[in-house]
Deep mutational scan, measured.
Amino acid sequence: MSIQHFRVALIPFFAAFCLPVFAHPETLVKVKDAEDQLGARVGYIELDLNSGKILESFRPEERFPMMSTFKVLLCGAVLSRVDAGQEQLGRRIHYSQNDLVEYSPVTEKHLTDGMTVRELCSAAITMSDNTAANLLLTTIGGPKELTAFLHNMGDHVTRLDRWEPELNEAIPNDERDTTMPAAMATTLRKLLTGELLTLASRQQLIDWMEADKVAGPLLRSALPAGWFIADKSGAGERGSRGIIAALGPDGKPSRIVVIYTTGSQATMDERNRQIAEIGASLIKHW
Rank of each mutant, 00 (worst) to 15 (best):
T261D: 15
L136H: 14
A77W: 00
I244F: 12
R202M: 03
Q97W: 14
T112F: 14
T116Q: 09
S128N: 14
N152A: 10
S233G: 09
T107G: 01
I259L: 12
K30L: 14
M153W: 05
D231V: 06
V106M: 14
T198S: 11
W163T: 12
T147A: 06
P65T: 07
S240A: 04
R63A: 03
E61C: 07
L160A: 08
K30D: 15
M67N: 14
P143V: 06
C75V: 15
W227I: 03
G248W: 05
A182C: 10
D231H: 09
D129I: 01
E26D: 14
R162A: 11
A230K: 14
G216M: 15
S68H: 00
T198H: 08
T158S: 05
I243A: 06
L28Q: 09
P217A: 09
G239F: 05
R59I: 02
A84W: 07
A246V: 07
S128V: 04
W163M: 11
P217I: 14
F70V: 03
K71Q: 00
S254N: 10
G194K: 03
G242M: 05
K32E: 12
L111G: 04
T179S: 10
L100Y: 11
E270A: 14
R59P: 04
S240E: 13
R238Y: 12
P253Y: 01
L247D: 04
I229M: 04
S57M: 13
L74Q: 07
N173F: 14
T131W: 08
S240T: 09
K252Q: 03
V157F: 11
N134R: 07
G39F: 08
R238M: 05
A280H: 10
E108M: 04
T262G: 05
D48C: 03
K144Y: 10
A211Y: 04
A246F: 04
A276K: 11
Q274Y: 07
E61A: 09
I206M: 13
S128R: 02
T267I: 09
I125A: 00
W286E: 02
I229S: 03
Q37I: 11
A215L: 04
M268Y: 05
W208K: 03
I45R: 00
R59F: 10
M268P: 02
F228W: 08
L47Y: 06
G239L: 10
A276F: 10
M184A: 08
T178N: 15
E61Y: 02
D212S: 12
I259F: 14
G216H: 08
T139F: 04
P105W: 07
Y260Q: 03
L192E: 03
C75T: 12
Q88G: 13
G52E: 01
D161C: 09
R189P: 12
A148V: 09
A182K: 11
D113C: 00
W163L: 11
K53P: 09
A215W: 01
A77H: 00
L111W: 03
Q204F: 01
P105Y: 01
M67C: 15
L74A: 14
S201A: 13
E195N: 06
N272D: 00
D155T: 09
F58P: 00
S128M: 14
D269K: 10
A34E: 02
E164R: 04
D174F: 02
T193G: 09
S233N: 09
K213Q: 03
G234H: 03
P65L: 05
L192T: 07
D155P: 05
D155Q: 06
T131G: 08
T138Y: 10
L197I: 09
V157G: 11
V42R: 04
R255W: 09
P60E: 04
V106R: 13
G248T: 08
R92N: 02
V214Q: 14
I275M: 12
E46G: 12
A40K: 14
S128E: 00
R159V: 06
K53N: 02
Q37D: 13
Y103I: 10
D212C: 06
A133G: 04
E169S: 09
A266S: 05
K213M: 12
K109E: 14
A276G: 09
I278Y: 13
I93V: 01
I125P: 00
T126D: 14
S240C: 04
Q37P: 06
R63H: 14
K71G: 01
P165I: 01
V258S: 09
G242L: 04
G141K: 00
G239V: 15
Q265M: 06
R162D: 11
L282S: 04
D177T: 12
T112Y: 06
R271K: 06
D129Q: 00
F228G: 02
A182V: 10
D48R: 09
P143R: 06
E119C: 15
T116K: 15
E195C: 00
T131D: 01
R189L: 13
D161M: 12
G226R: 03
T112I: 01
K30S: 15
L219C: 10
G154T: 07
T158V: 06
D113Y: 00
S201E: 12
G154N: 07
K284Q: 07
T131Q: 09
T139Q: 14
R159Y: 00
T178H: 07
E210Y: 15
I93C: 04
Q97L: 14
T107D: 01
T262N: 12
K144P: 10
P224R: 11
L160N: 02
Q265A: 10
A230W: 10
L146Q: 12
L247C: 13
